[in-house]
Amino acid sequence: MSDLLDSLAARGREALSDGACVLRAAAIDDADALLTAIADVCRAAPPRHLLVPGGKRMSVAMSNCGALGWVSDARGYRYERCDPLSGQPWPPMPEPMLRVARAAAAESGYDGFAPDACLINRYEPGARMSLHRDHDEGDLSAPIVSISLGLPATFLWGGLARSDKPRRLRLAHGDVVVWGGASRLAYHGVAPLADGHHAATGRLRWNLTFRKAR
């Protein structure tokens, strides 16, 4: 862990707001291992386009790993211990994912981060994530760690009110965003993904979002 923390520190940290930062290229050395882990999880729990309570289908395809998984349907947003498609527990969180998430949290000032859920988002060109805040978790004292892999994306970083105008940040392969503390409930999202090709992922962007749900 100490070697990884030294590597993260050497690449620099960009502050976003109180308690939030971007760690540029923090996951680049582990990107291949993370993509392999994603493939393993998605074989057991294939990504799917979830319905939101209003009846629309999300443009981003999602899967989960860890003790809990985030799901959405006509009944609302919540965490479940089992994949509703298979009825089986979500795949365990692979060690490379947990290791990078914990190191990124520690580098950002959140020691002892122990995520029990990892939401895996698959973006194809045109997919987007509207402004929202992560508030379904039972432990809001823990941070959120978000890892970007593949095609670059425009990350929207807002304030504590939905009406706050968001900043637009370019996130590249291996970048990690961490937020907690005073910024834990900040609004954020992703602009429609531009088409392109990445050597590691083709026409896809993958995003790993780690949370302490319970």
Rank of each mutant, 00 (worst) to 15 (best):
residue 165 K to F: 04
residue 32 D to R: 13
residue 56 K to N: 11
residue 180 G to W: 04
residue 212 K to L: 11
residue 138 G to L: 12
residue 138 G to I: 12
residue 59 S to V: 08
residue 129 M to H: 06
residue 147 I to Y: 02
residue 36 T to H: 13
residue 165 K to H: 11
residue 178 V to F: 09
residue 51 L to I: 07
residue 86 S to N: 11
residue 64 N to M: 02
residue 148 S to W: 05
residue 72 S to R: 08
residue 19 G to V: 13
residue 150 G to E: 11
residue 48 R to D: 01
residue 163 S to A: 15
residue 194 A to Q: 15
residue 53 P to S: 01
residue 75 R to A: 15
residue 160 L to V: 05
residue 140 L to W: 01
residue 11 R to D: 08
residue 74 A to Y: 10
residue 201 T to E: 11
residue 126 G to C: 07
residue 64 N to V: 04
residue 113 F to T: 01
residue 26 A to Y: 05
residue 17 S to V: 02
residue 83 D to G: 02
residue 185 L to M: 13
residue 37 A to L: 01
residue 184 R to T: 07
residue 175 D to A: 09
residue 141 S to A: 15
residue 22 V to Y: 04
residue 61 A to H: 08
residue 135 H to F: 10
residue 178 V to P: 09
residue 107 E to T: 04
residue 52 V to Y: 14
residue 91 P to N: 00
residue 186 A to W: 00
residue 43 R to T: 14
residue 80 E to P: 00
residue 139 D to V: 13
residue 8 L to E: 02
residue 150 G to V: 10
residue 153 A to W: 02
residue 60 V to L: 06
residue 168 R to V: 04
residue 49 H to G: 03
residue 8 L to Y: 07
residue 183 S to D: 01
residue 142 A to K: 07
residue 102 R to Y: 02
residue 81 R to G: 13
residue 176 V to Q: 06
residue 35 L to C: 09
residue 128 R to P: 01
residue 79 Y to C: 09
residue 6 D to F: 06
residue 112 G to Q: 06
residue 137 E to N: 05
residue 189 G to R: 04
residue 129 M to A: 08
residue 155 F to P: 07
residue 79 Y to V: 10
residue 126 G to P: 09
residue 92 P to V: 05
residue 79 Y to P: 07
residue 47 P to S: 08
residue 166 P to M: 10
residue 150 G to Q: 10
residue 210 F to G: 05
residue 125 P to W: 11
residue 111 D to M: 08
residue 136 D to G: 00
residue 139 D to C: 12
residue 30 D to E: 15
residue 44 A to F: 03
residue 27 A to Q: 08
residue 48 R to W: 01
residue 115 P to N: 04
residue 4 L to T: 04
residue 151 L to Q: 12
residue 83 D to E: 03
residue 31 A to M: 07
residue 145 V to G: 06
residue 71 V to L: 04
residue 47 P to E: 06
residue 107 E to A: 15
residue 68 L to N: 02
residue 180 G to V: 04
residue 94 P to D: 00
residue 14 E to W: 03
residue 40 D to E: 15
residue 66 G to A: 08
residue 154 T to M: 12
residue 24 R to D: 03
residue 212 K to F: 02
residue 197 H to N: 13
residue 178 V to T: 09
residue 48 R to K: 08
residue 54 G to L: 06
residue 136 D to A: 15
residue 38 I to K: 01
residue 163 S to K: 14
residue 119 L to T: 04
residue 37 A to V: 02
residue 62 M to D: 00
residue 186 A to Y: 00
residue 39 A to M: 03
residue 93 M to N: 01
residue 184 R to A: 06
residue 67 A to N: 02
residue 41 V to N: 01
residue 122 R to I: 03
residue 212 K to S: 14
residue 116 D to T: 08
residue 111 D to C: 07
residue 101 A to T: 00
residue 92 P to K: 03
residue 91 P to K: 00
residue 140 L to K: 02
residue 60 V to E: 06
residue 35 L to I: 12
residue 151 L to C: 11
residue 68 L to D: 03
residue 149 L to E: 05
residue 117 A to T: 12
residue 142 A to E: 12
residue 83 D to A: 03
residue 24 R to S: 14
residue 135 H to S: 13
residue 61 A to D: 10
residue 115 P to T: 05
residue 124 E to C: 09
residue 8 L to M: 15
residue 20 A to L: 05
residue 89 P to N: 06
residue 4 L to D: 03
residue 85 L to F: 12
residue 33 A to R: 10
residue 37 A to K: 00
residue 82 C to M: 09
residue 108 S to H: 03
residue 158 G to R: 09
residue 44 A to D: 12
residue 133 R to A: 05
residue 162 R to L: 14
